[in-house]
C-alpha cells in the first residue's frame, strides 16, 4: 500500500488548481452573488461553511490538544525531575528514578543507521523507477515497492524477530565486526541478534518505500529538456543520473527528513528486535532501547503515577521531536514540489 504521504505526493499532479475548484461558498463570489437575496439558502450555506471549517480545523486542534494533554499528564515527572530527565541515565521503576538519555540515544542512533542504509538504496530504486528502466515495467515495479509500505509494522517485527535477526547475527554481522571492529570501536564484537544495529536495519527496510516514492516523484519531475541537454553532450547514464540528482536535490532532502520522521516514531518492529535493554551500549551490536519502544513495552505495567507520568513524558519528548521533524519535512517537500511544477510549466 502507499502510505498516505506517498499517496498524496504522487497524486499531487492530479490536482488542477483553483479553476476547477471555485470557492463558490464565498457569499461575495460575483458569479453567484445573486443568491444573496435568498436568505434561506444563505443560512444553510453559512451553517455548512462554519461547520466544515470547524471540523476541518479538528486536525489542527488535535495536535494542540495532544501537546496540552501530554504536558498535563507528565506534569508530575516534569516537576520532579526537571530538565535532568532528558540527560538522566537511570530508569528505575522501583525507586522512581527516571532519565531518558539512553532512550533518546537509541532513537537517534537507530534512525541514523536506518537513513544511512535506506537513502542510497532508495535513491537507486528511485532512479531506476524514474528514468533507467523500460517504461512498461515501471508501474509493476513501483507497485511492488509500495507493497513494502503496506505491510504492517508488527509483521516486520515478527519477521525481524524470527528470521532477519538470526540471519544478520550468523552471516552478516560477524564478518563486518571482525574486519571493521578493530578500526571502528562501535562495530567491535561480540555481536548479538537483538541489537541497535538490527533495529536500524529493520527501520531501513521500512522507510525505503517512503523515501524512494518521494524521490522518484522528484526525479520524474526533472524536465526532459534538462536531461536531453546533458545526453546530447555525450553523457553516460551515470552522468545523466548525477544531473537528475542535483536538479532534484531538495526533493531528496525532503524525502530523507520524512523518512527520518517515520523512523523516529516507528514502534512495533523496533521494539521486537532491539533487545529493550535500558543503557547506552558500547557497540551497535548490543541491545538498546528507544523512546517509542519503552512506551509500548512498559506502559501497561506502569501502575504508579510517577512511573506512568515519566513514560508520558517520554511520549512528550517523542511528540516534540516528531513535530519538529515533520513540520520541517513538509515545508521542504512542499517547496521542492512547487519548484518542480514551476520548472515544468516553464
Amino acid at each position: 500500500m502507499k502510505r498516505p504521504s506517498e499517496w498524496r505526493l504522487s497524486t499531487a499532479s492530479l490536482s488542477y488548481g483553483k479553476e476547477l475548484a471555485p470557492s463558490f461558498f464565498y457569499p461575495t463570489t460575483p458569479e453567484y452573488g445573486g443568491r444573496r437575496i435568498m436568505p434561506k439558502e444563505i443560512t444553510g450555506d453559512r451553517v455548512f461553511t462554519w461547520l466544515a471549517a470547524g471540523i476541518g480545523s479538528s486536525v489542527i486542534i488535535i495536535i494542540f490538544l495532544m501537546a496540552y494533554e501530554l504536558i498535563k499528564e507528565s506534569r508530575l515527572a516534569i516537576d520532579k525531575y526537571g530538565l535532568g530527565f532528558v540527560w538522566g541515565t537511570t530508569w528505575d521503576p522501583v525507586f522512581f528514578e527516571f532519565g531518558a538519555l539512553p532512550l533518546i540515544w537509541g532513537t537517534l542512533v537507530t534512525s541514523a543507521i536506518a537513513l544511512l542504509l535506506a537513502v542510497p538504496v532508495s535513491i537507486g530504486v528511485a532512479l531506476v523507477l524514474s528514468h533507467f528502466s523500460p517504461v512498461r515495467f515501471r508501474f509493476a515495479i513501483s507497485f511492488l515497492v509500495e507493497l513494502l509500505a503496506a505491510i504492517p509494522s508488527v509483521v516486520y517485527g515478527l519477521w525481524g524477530l524470527f528470521t532477519l535477526a538470526p540471519i544478520l547475527r550468523d552471516y552478516i554481522y560477524p564478518p563486518i565486526s571482525s574486519t571493521l571492529g578493530s578500526v571502528v570501536p562501535i562495530l567491535a564484537p561480540p555481536v548479538i541478534a537483538y541489537s541497535v544495529m538490527t533495529g536500524g536495519v529493520i527501520l531501513a527496510i521500512m522507510i525505503i518505500p517512503t523515501i524512494s516514492a518521494i524521490t522518484r516523484d522528484a526525479f520524474a519531475a526533472v524536465p526532459l529538456a534538462q536531461r536531453e541537454a546533458v545526453i546530447s553532450l555525450g553523457a553516460t547514464r551515470w552522468e545523466t543520473a548525477r544531473l537528475v540528482m542535483s536538479y532534484a536535490r531538495s526533493g531528496i532532502i525532503g524525502a530523507t527528513i520524512l523518512g527520518l520522521g517515520r523512523a523516529v516514531g516507528e514502534t512495533m518492529a523496533v521494539t521486537m528486535v532491539i533487545g529493550n535493554r535500558f543503557e547506552i551500549p558500547s557497540t551497535l551490536f548490543q541491545p538498546g532501547y528507544t523512546m517509542a519502544a519503552i512506551i509500548a513495552n512498559e506502559f501497561t505495567e506502569a501502575t504508579e503515577d510517577i512511573y506512568l507520568s515519566a513514560l508520558i513524558e517520554v511520549g512528550l519528548v517523542l511528540f516534540a521531536v516528531a513535530l519538529v521533524i515533520n513540520m520541517f519535512a513538509q515545508i521542504i517537500v512542499r517547496r521542492s514540489l512547487k519548484m518542480f511544477r514551476g520548472a515544468v510549466r516553464e
Binding site: 524536465p223 534538462q226 536531453e228 546533458v230 544531473l243
Partner: peptide
Amino acid sequence: FQRANPFP
C-alpha cells in the same frame, strides 16, 4: 534545442 535549456 528549440528552447534554451541551461542547467539552472
